[in-house]
Design a protein around this nucleic acid. Structure first.
Lengths: 151, 151
DNA sequence: CGAGGTCGTTAGCTAGGATAATTAGCGAGT
DNA sequence: ACTCGCTAATTATCCTAGCTAACGACCTCG
């Protein structure tokens, strides 16, 4: 295992970044395939954000999800259509809508999480403990990086 | 196999899988945004596969990339259009086309890799060494898992 | 030769990203 | 108090990229 354990050179870093990028891309695609949903992964991600970050406006959703507002509009239209979120007018600012998750949304999210995680959990169950731990820590690092990268 | 110290419970495993899934999805999205290409990440992935796995037929490409043949057809149409691959008739089977990467394709891939990896490398440069090492190992693990999952 | 299977393509659907342009509402400056 | 500029949200349109269904071309085998 080269490059681990000592400070990586710029070249090694680039190499590692390239591998990570490929692995992430392919895994994302695989996950999409392994966990077919009726409502689309991006919409699910948005719904999860709405659950986690409380009632928010479409613009806030767009900022958090790093998508454009029109995309948020469309995603929200589907979620609303499906009864997973509600939109109410902001009493303080007539331009804003306030989006909230519904009980049905929470239920959907819960069931989805269970199903969508099954493939990965199944895969991880077959890995040695070290690897599982590594992946878990990698997830944390990625979370942190993703969080920092947003301003 | 398992059973060393920090063995995760089923619940923990599920939790970890869920976090990894989210992190992978978000990172993939971020990478797509950070590395805008004129030709689309899936097409690039296909081109990389064509480079790596030598001359192949559209069906083989579809199998390796885990996409359907019509999708492969479209991707190949764009790559051919862009002069990055060539298609020749299979002399032994009139139904098959044989797809090969062109020098321009290799060049494109090379330049793209450099550009597309920049964001991750930049990000990783700011991480402590052990985080970089963790991510590198995670990439290896994911590669292995992805490789195993295909038959 | 004909039947059935495979390869590649075409047509049409959906999701999810983007931009550009429009509408509505807020707030500050004169 | 009105207008101007900014922001919020939507609408319309375009793109990539997955899918299925259906089709013609071709191979294989009885």
């Amino acid at each position: 295992m080269k490059g681990t354990g000592a400070t990586a050179t710029a070249e090694e870093l680039t190499e590692q970044a390239a591998r990570l990028r490929l692995a992430v891309n392919r895994m994302a695609r695989r996950l999409r395939q392994e966990a077919p949903t009726e409502i689309g992964p991006a919409s699910i991600a948005a719904l999860a954000t709405i659950e986690r970050s409380g009632p928010l406006t479409p613009s806030e959703l767009a900022r958090i999800e790093r998508i454009r507002r029109p995309t948020a509009t469309r995603v929200l239209a589907r979620l609303t259509e499906a009864g997973l979120v509600t939109r109410t007018a902001d009493p303080e600012d007539g331009r804003c809508a306030i989006v909230q998750i519904t009980p049905a949304g929470r239920r959907t999210l819960k069931g989805l999480r269970r199903r969508k995680t099954a493939y990965l959990a199944r895969t991880m169950r077959e890995l040695p403990d070290d690897d599982v731990a590594t992946l878990a820590r990698a997830a944390e690092i990625l979370e942190r990086v993703l969080e920092e990268g947003r301003e």
